[in-house]
């Protein structure tokens, strides 16, 4: 067979899968978003409303703006916490020794835990009556003793951010370890000979060398944070109240609790559009780093 035809035959199964499980759902969700449709009341869309949902959403839907704010706060806090922790881990455990390598392998474990297990486990560990971490925290910080952490709006958000950082920092640690190893030892030695202290060396030699990788990490983690859903469902269910109701969780609730498919689809498209912008930025950065 001619290569010209064969190549399309080879990608055809993959295209079919992606068309059926991604392209079609995305298009279909957009079509839903143009309709009034509550799945609990009707098996098919009840009315075509055009862009009405989007107008309502962007106009003054308090739920959207509230959950967008929650998502933004969570994203900023989790990106900063996760990457700071990951960088600290990389500096502590980035060495070439066997001990360091062994510990790095062990640290893959939290990352390999399923998001659902991580969420459920931390809900257990933070339980005011029988949570081991809650007990430990209460002992270390007496004002927290016996306090139901996940029932307090701000503490629940802090817990969610820290849980997410616990889950993701090992992954970014590995990314940073690779980047740190790529810094030539001579550069650092030269700085030491010139009398630069540790902190100075880190600030003026190491950090600038990490810039490209840091930029990629920030964007990648931002994307993961904006999408975050599993931890919220399993740990806080958006609560207490709506304190941790991220945009993704609001969409989940609207679609699968209230069955308001039309409105949920419009919300979901706003989220997907946000992510598309971030992904495009990521693509540019990643290509710039590779070149």
């Amino acid at each position: 067979m001619r290569d010209a035809r064969l190549k399309y035959l080879l990608v055809a199964p993959a295209l079919l899968v992606l068309a059926g499980t991604l392209a079609w759902p995305l298009a279909s969700a957009f079509w839903h978003s143009l309709h009034e449709w509550n799945l609990a009341r009707s098996p098919s869309p009840t009315a075509f409303v055009g862009l009405d949902h989007y107008v309502t959403l962007l106009g003054d839907d308090p739920d959207l703006w509230r959950s967008a704010r929650v998502t933004l706060v969570f994203t900023l806090a989790s990106v900063a916490t996760t990457l700071a922790l990951a960088l600290a881990l990389a500096l502590l455990l980035g060495g070439p020794g066997r001990l360091e390598a062994g510990i790095r392998t062990l640290l893959v474990l939290p990352f390999a835990m399923s998001p659902a297990l991580v969420g459920v486990s931390w809900r257990f560990l933070l339980n005011p009556e029988l949570g081991a971490v809650a007990a430990l925290l209460g002992w270390l910080v007496p004002p927290l003793a016996g306090r139901p952490i996940l029932a307090d709006p701000s503490l629940a958000m802090v817990a969610l951010v820290l849980t997410d950082a616990w889950h993701w920092s090992p992954y970014f640690m590995l990314l940073f370890v690779g980047a740190l190893a790529a810094i030539p030892a001579e550069t650092i030695e030269a700085a030491a000979i010139d009398g630069a202290g540790r902190l100075r060396t880190f600030r003026s030699i190491v950090l600038p060398q990490l810039r490209a990788v840091l930029a990629i990490a920030v964007l990648l983690k931002t994307i993961f944070s904006v999408k975050l859903l599993d931890h919220v469902v399993t740990m806080t269910a958006g609560g207490p109240g709506t304190a941790t109701e991220t945009l993704a969780h609001l969409i989940f609730q609207t679609a699968f609790r209230w069955y308001d498919v039309g409105y949920a689809a419009a919300l979901a498209w706003l989220l997907a559009a946000t992510l598309a912008v971030l992904a495009a930025l990521y693509g540019r950065l990643a290509r710039g780093a590779a070149a």
Partner: peptide, 17 residues
Amino acid sequence: LATQFVPPVIVAIPLFV
């Protein structure tokens, strides 16, 4: 590569229907 950035929650709605 871009497919990795599609949020599952948007895919889930039409799949569920």
